[in-house]
Design a protein around this nucleic acid. Sequence first.
DNA 1: TAATAAATAATATCTGATACTTAATTATAT
DNA 2: ATATAATTAAGTATCAGATATTATTTATTA
Lengths: 248, 248
Amino acid sequence: MLNLNEQLVHLLGRQIIQGKILPGTLLPKVEVMSEQYAVSRTVVREALKGLSSRKLVVSIPKKGTVVCARNEWQWWDPEVLSWACEDTPDYNFLQQLTEMRLAIEPTSSELAAKNATQEDIKNITDSFQKLESSAVNRSESEWAIADYNFHQSIMAASHNELLINLGNLLRNALLQSRQETIKGYSNDEKDSSISKEQALILHKNVYLAICKRNSIEARQTMYDLILNVNKILEKGKEKIKNEIKMNF
Amino acid sequence: MLNLNEQLVHLLGRQIIQGKILPGTLLPKVEVMSEQYAVSRTVVREALKGLSSRKLVVSIPKKGTVVCARNEWQWWDPEVLSWACEDTPDYNFLQQLTEMRLAIEPTSSELAAKNATQEDIKNITDSFQKLESSAVNRSESEWAIADYNFHQSIMAASHNELLINLGNLLRNALLQSRQETIKGYSNDEKDSSISKEQALILHKNVYLAICKRNSIEARQTMYDLILNVNKILEKGKEKIKNEIKMNF
DNA sequence: TAATAAATAATATCTGATACTTAATTATAT
DNA sequence: ATATAATTAAGTATCAGATATTATTTATTA
């Protein structure tokens, strides 16, 4: 279980990110919040530290604690991303995430082709083979995990800590965002299996380019892959949107 | 001036990021640090909150507070990045930053070509014209500012909050990192001016592609631009490395 | 009227006490 | 002897009351 202050960070952070508390809002003073949430002032203050280090609020003596503008928020914080993903099916945010992927992944692949060690190549090979077998087994969940690991193994081979860190944040956010969005809609076991063969080919192109140490090709094939994934996702979005419409 | 707890966050954060305190290290218990730094326990605890929200440390009852592994650190936090940039000329880190740019900027340009409003185009045009005039004036500092603004105006036109946020972090880190690294070496006013005309052409290609709304070309031209910038930076690095060698 | 001083309202800080958590150790029972 | 249960110890987590600091607003004075 989380600490009291962490619970409060989550409670307030979520409300801020999800627009329940708007930027510019003056939060109640510490003593009031202390009473309101039935915790000590210490806990409230420590929670405010958690929020201010994420640039969600700023505390000013005599004035109080105010909610920061969206452009000051530390979006690339795991908690902030998570709160944003929790927000009711937000296609706009999901799109931003996939656009980020289009930025990160090709470079990741390019650097992997340049910098991969023998061990990295082995890891990438392993994860690619798992992807192949999951395509044969036609298990959607197995594919998802294998896909996650494939991309992670490539990113690891880039040997760029910043990129790896960002990639992890992004992958987790996408995973969560998709789960939240899909929640309730279509237990999609094997419904996109038609395109699995095609997807596997795209993955194979990336894999081979990296093994060949062809960084230009590695970048290009990964770009093609992500673009294709995004297109499929796009279709899924449309479908869900229509389902939602039909309910009204 | 910063709060006491913020001062302590910086002091400890810097030491952790810069490897003066290694991952796995058990920090002294709160009471001891309180005495050591001559601040109250409250201040120490709030500072630890600042560090733990950046995943630099984790506090465990009975055990104490331990420094997290590098791969857990929240690299994409402005303070963390800043502390990393402060670290003695670290070419490896600088290279990671430039590699990140190679990831971000082409996508930024691509999205700008797709999503730019009329106002965005105007801003980009303005910043490009400033760039042109600074090239004519051959002022290195003026060019640096104009260049910064040019890339920022493009990123703003992507209308992707996540990308914009990351871009700002990256640009600032790069700026700081370059300043720290170059510090003392070569007041490079006009020493790279030979390639200014060439650089301007590359920028113009990007600018025109975006105006034409050609997203593929926008992506490609930006890629070429950043690649070229990196090459120049690479040369500078070599030069500095040699200078350092000569001093020993 | 303008400059200065006092009052005010919030955060920032200090302190001592208490609760909680967990690992290790010791005691107990089988 | 071994498994289980109770005890203890060492740290963080939490509480609450008092004081300091700071920036604004209000009152006072030249």
